[in-house]
Structure formats: C-alpha cells, structure tokens
C-alpha cells in the first residue's frame, strides 16, 4: 500500500521533471532556430516556397470558415439583439468579436491543424528517413536549411490569414444580416465603424495573431525535429503539435487579452 503511494508520487515527479526538461529543450531549440535564421533571410526563395505551403494552401479553409463564422455570428447576434430592439448593433457585435478574439484565435487553431501538423509531419519524416542526417553529412545545416524557412513562413502568414479571416467574417455577417434579414446597410457599417478602434481593436488583434504565429510554428518545428524517427513517433508528434498548439493558443489568448483590454470597456 505504502509502496504504491510512493510510486504514484514518484510517477508525478518523473512527469514534472520530464515536462520541464522538454520545455527547456524546446526553448533552446527555439533560440537555435532564431540564431540560424540568417540563411533564410539571405535565401528568401526558401521562405517563399514554404509560404506557398503554409499560407496559400491554408487560404481555402480560412476563407470558408471565416465566412461561416461571420454568418453564424450575424444570425445569432441578430436573434438575441432584436429582443432588446437593438438589432442595429449587430455590425458592432460581429466586428468586435471577430477582430478582437475570433479572428486571431480561430484562424490560429485552423492554422495549427492545417499547416502546423503538415510542418511536423514533413520534418519528422525527413528525420525518420535520415534526410536531415544526410544534409548534415554534406555540411548543410538542417536547422538553417529546413527548419528556419518553415518557421518564418508560418510567422509571416499567420497575421495575414487572421486578417483575411476577420474580413471574410465581417462580410459573412453583412451577407446574413443586411442582404438576407434586411438590417439597414448604413447602420451596419456606421455602428461598426464608430465602435471599432484602430489601435485598441485592430492593432491588438494583429499583435495577437503575430504571437500565435510564432507559438504555433515554433511548436510545430520543434515537435517535428524532436520526433522519434519511426512511423509511430511521427504520428505521435503530429498529434502533439495540434493538441499543444491549440492549448497554447487558448492560454496565450487569455493572457494577451488580460493585458490588452484591461480597463477598456
């Protein structure tokens, strides 16, 4: 009985130490990627190639989900607001929730599952098939040649994707509330414009998406580079990328929101 309790405590301790060790390992890897980013800036073609895979190929899912999220927000917001006779505020509701929260967060979640998982799987498989080791043999640094361009492409494309998501959402809300339901078009835009502030709302949303881009791609490249070089290891790493980055996005969003919108009504 006593021994069981002891081993349970030991188990907890082991997991905590393992977790902290992994966190330290990830931070060191992150700094290493930053230090070796010079190559990707000099050979920007590498980053452009990765931008195609992370940014352009994520466009479809971002555009479609943005449109539908905006449409649902418009529909539900209208249903509730019209009970209080203030359906003219539906534009404000759609725009503020998209620009402040939903745009950056949902776009980052989609980005993590669409592009982050692909980055992890690609790097993990390169490691499993010993392509990374082969590059090392040829005196090509795999971190500078493979990891850094993918990292920067994610960091660059994330704010753009979040902005596209928000714009599509605003137009989705416009489509449902103005075109289908018949809220006045002028009210929709003017209420929105008087409530949305450039610095407090749009700039803060943009800063948020930059943070998310760094977090998601840093996790993705680390998990890929750190994956055990087996089929099982790569699949586990891909799953961990999606789960960890989703949790990090949500936690980071709460912290950033607490800092940015404190004292702002």
């Amino acid at each position: 009985m006593f021994r069981h309790a002891l081993s349970a405590i030991q188990n907890i301790g082991h997991r905590v130490i393992e977790g902290i060790w992994r966190l330290g390992h990830a931070s060191r890897f992150f700094i290493l990627v930053l230090l070796k980013s010079g190559t990707s800036l000099r050979r920007f073609g590498l980053v452009i190639r990765e931008l195609y895979f992370t940014g352009v190929l994520s466009l479809i899912i971002i555009v479609v989900s943005g449109l539908f999220v905006g449409m649902v927000l418009g529909l539900q917001g209208y249903e509730t607001l019209q009970k209080y006779g203030s359906e003219s505020a539906v534009g404000t509701l759609v725009a503020l929730s998209l620009v402040r929260e939903l745009g950056p967060v949902v776009a980052a979640l989609l980005f993590a599952s669409r592009a982050g998982s692909a980055i992890t799987a690609e790097i993990g498989l390169m490691k499993a098939t010993e392509q990374l080791a082969a590059m090392g043999m040829m005196a090509v640094d795999p971190v500078a040649r493979v990891v850094a361009p993918r990292f920067w492409s994610g960091v660059i494309s994330m704010p753009f994707l979040a902005a596209i998501f928000s714009v599509m959402g605003v137009y989705g809300g416009y489509l449902v509330t103005v075109v289908f339901i018949g809220v006045d078009e002028g009210t929709y835009w003017s209420q929105m414009q008087s409530a949305v502030d450039f610095r407090f709302d749009i700039l803060n949303g943009f800063i948020k998406s930059c943070f998310f881009g760094v977090a998601v791609t840093a996790i993705a490249v680390f998990e890929g580079y750190d994956a055990p070089p087996t089929a099982e290891g790569v699949s586990g790493a891909t799953t961990r990328t999606v789960v960890t980055s989703s949790l990090v996005i949500l936690g980071l969003d709460f912290i950033l929101t607490a800092f940015m919108f404190r004292g702002v009504s």
Binding site: L51, Y52, V56, L59, F198
Partner: peptide, 17 residues
C-alpha cells in the same frame, strides 16, 4: 496571398475601423 493579406488589413483599418 501576401497582397490579399495586406488588402484584408487595409479593409479592416479603413472600412471596419
């Protein structure tokens, strides 16, 4: 893609904000 992203940011700042 980059042009669409910049255009989206412009729309956000000018039309929405």
């Amino acid at each position: 893609f980059v042009m669409a992203g910049i255009a989206a940011l412009m729309v956000l700042s000018l039309k929405v904000g």
